[in-house]
């Protein structure tokens, strides 16, 4: 067992873990924060995307120990109290989710996308940037709409 500590959604956490522990296992099993999901074994589905020091990463393909000292944000840390993050609100408003399983990863990916590519996102860019996020329910139509709207709303909120 090896000691690890990091900041998750603004809270300092530390634990003794098996070095094999993936970040997603640390979040789900150690911290019991189950909003981050696992949908594949090959780093392709994106259900597990979280932010590590602001970068979107696949928490199923990241050792928890590598994140020692890092700041991690998960879907649970996005809203400010009862106030939804604009991207969360956009997913609801645009019916960008059905079963909800891929949704946390989609939203985390989308928020980071805006940080890199800005708040005016065209459909092509959004579709390309979703290369690493699979959804089986929505056919992506409304996810693309939601991200475009959420990006705009993030721009407005930042003003």
């Amino acid at each position: 067992m090896t000691a690890v500590s990091m900041t998750v959604n603004g809270q300092h956490v530390s634990a003794e873990i098996d070095p094999r522990t993936l970040l997603v296992q640390f979040l789900r099993e150690e911290l019991r924060m189950t909003g981050t999901h696992v949908g594949c074994d090959t780093s392709q589905c994106g259900c597990c995307v979280v932010h590590v020091n602001g970068d979107a990463v696949k928490s199923c393909t990241t050792l928890a120990l590598t994140c020692d000292g890092a700041s991690v944000t998960t879907i649970e840390g996005l809203a400010k109290g009862d106030e939804l993050h604009p991207m969360q609100a956009a997913f609801r408003e645009n019916h960008g989710l059905q079963c909800g399983f891929c949704t946390p990863g989609m939203i985390m990916t989308a928020v980071e996308l805006v940080s890199r590519k800005g708040t005016n996102l065209d459909e092509h860019t959004i579709r390309e940037e979703l290369e690493g996020n699979l959804c089986r329910c929505t056919g992506y139509h409304n996810i693309v709409k939601a991200i475009a709207a959420g990006a705009q709303a993030m721009g407005t909120a930042a003003e």
């Binding site: 999901h37 649970e76 969360q88």
Partner: peptide, 11 residues
């Protein structure tokens, strides 16, 4: 939707 977009779904 609220529970799904905030990571509070229960699968």
């Amino acid at each position: 939707d609220f529970r799904f977009i905030t990571g509070k779904g229960r699968y």
